[in-house]
C-alpha cells in the first residue's frame, strides 16, 4: 500500500467519496429543477428555483413532521440516559450470578427484531390506548433501545476505579447518593455516545411510527416522506425536496459533531 504516491491516494479517496455522495447529489438536482425541465439529472440547473421546497412544506406538512420527530427523539433520548445510566450502575458494580444473568437477558433483547414482535406489540398498544400517542411510542422506543444504552454505560462504569465508591461508602454515602454525586458526573463522554447513537436511530426510525402513529397530525419525518413519495408519484421534484430537507439537519449536526459521532460508534463496538 505504501508504494502509492500520496497524490494518487488523494485522487482515489476523493473519487470513492464522490460515489457515496452521488445519490444525495442527484436528489438535490431533482429538487432544484422545474418539473418541466427534462434535462439530465446529472446536471445541476442553471437557474434558482425553490417551488419544490415550498410545496414540500405545505403539502408534505414537513414542519409539523419535524417538530413531532424532535419531540419523540428528545423524550426517548432523555429517558434512555436517565433509566439506562441508573440501571447500569448496579449491573456493572455487583458481580453476582444474578446480576450477570440479568445483564445477559438484557443483551439478548438486542437480538429481537422489531418486526418479529410487531403483531403482539400492536395489539398490546391498542389495549393500552397507546396508539397515536407520544407516550406510547416513546416508551416502546425506550424499551427497545435500552439494552445497548445499558451496555455502553456498564462498560464505561467498569473503567471507573472502585476506590472512589469505597471512599464514598466510608463517608456513609448510600448507593443513590454515590451514583448521583460520584459516578454520574463522570459519564459525560458515554452519555454523548448514547444520545448520538440512539438519537439518530429514533430520528430515522420507520417501523414503530409506521404502526403506532397512523394519524397525519402525529407523523414523523420518515413517515411524512414515505407518504409524499407514494402519494405524489408524479411530483418527483417536491418529494425529492422533502427528502433533501429531511437529510439536511442530520448532515449539519453530523458535520458539527463529527468527532463525537465517530468515537461514540467505535467505543461502543470495541471495548
Amino acid at each position: 500500500m505504501s508504494r502509492f504516491p500520496k497524490w494518487a491516494v488523494s485522487v482515489i479517496a476523493i473519487g470513492l467519496a464522490a460515489i457515496h455522495l452521488l445519490p444525495l447529489y442527484i436528489a438535490a438536482t431533482v429538487a432544484f429543477k422545474k418539473t418541466t425541465d427534462l434535462s439530465s439529472r446529472w446536471r445541476f440547473p442553471g437557474y434558482f428555483y425553490l417551488d419544490h421546497f415550498k410545496q414540500a412544506f405545505t403539502e408534505g406538512h414537513l414542519l409539523r413532521a419535524f417538530s413531532n420527530t424532535v419531540v419523540l427523539t428528545v423524550a426517548t433520548a432523555l429517558l434512555l440516559v436517565l433509566i439506562g445510566s441508573v440501571a447500569a450502575y448496579p449491573l456493572s458494580r455487583v458481580k453476582t450470578k444474578l446480576s450477570r444473568g440479568v445483564m445477559n437477558a438484557i443483551l439478548g433483547v438486542m437480538m429481537i427484531p422489531t418486526l418479529s414482535v410487531i403483531v403482539p406489540l400492536y395489539s398490546f398498544m391498542h389495549q393500552l390506548h397507546a396508539l397515536n400517542t407520544y407516550w406510547g411510542i416513546v416508551l416502546v422506543s425506550t424499551a427497545f433501545n435500552l439494552p445497548l444504552g445499558i451496555f455502553l454505560y456498564a462498560n464505561f462504569i467498569n473503567t471507573i476505579p472502585k476506590e472512589l465508591d469505597e471512599a464514598a461508602k466510608v463517608d456513609g454515602c448510600g448507593h443513590y447518593r454515590l451514583f448521583f454525586r460520584i459516578i454520574l458526573p463522570q459519564l459525560k463522554p458515554v452519555t454523548a455516545a448514547v444520545v448520538i447513537l440512539k438519537g439518530l436511530k429514533v430520528w430515522n426510525e420507520y417501523e414503530f411510527p409506521l404502526y403506532f402513529l397512523q394519524k397525519p397530525q402525529n407523523q414523523t419525518i420518515t413517515l411524512a416522506i414515505s407518504h409524499f413519495f407514494s402519494d405524489t408519484s408524479s411530483d418527483f421534484g417536491s418529494a425529492s425536496a422533502a427528502a433533501v430537507l429531511a437529510v439536511l439537519p442530520v448532515t449539519v449536526i453530523f458535520l458539527a459533531l463529527q468527532k463525537y459521532f465517530v468515537s461514540g460508534l467505535s467505543d461502543g463496538a470495541i471495548k
Binding site: 500500500m1 505504501s2 500520496k6 497524490w7 491516494v9 488523494s10 479517496a13 476523493i14 470513492l16 467519496a17 464522490a18 457515496h20 455522495l21 445519490p23 444525495l24 442527484i26 436528489a27 439518530l200 430520528w203 430515522n204 420507520y206 420518515t222 416522506i225 414515505s226 413519495f229 418529494a239 425529492s240 427528502a243 429531511a246 437529510v247 442530520v250 448532515t251 453530523f254 458535520l255 463529527q258 459521532f261 465517530v262
Partner: peptide, 27 residues
C-alpha cells in the same frame, strides 16, 4: 494513511450512515 483530503473522504463515506434507509431507498 496521511494524505490531502483524508478527513473530507472519511466524512463523505460516513455521512450516508446518518440518512434513514427508507429515504435513501426513495432517493
Amino acid at each position: 494513511r496521511n494524505f490531502f483530503g483524508r478527513n473530507a473522504a472519511r466524512a463523505a463515506v460516513y455521512l450516508p450512515v446518518m440518512v434513514s434507509g427508507l429515504i435513501m431507498g426513495y432517493i
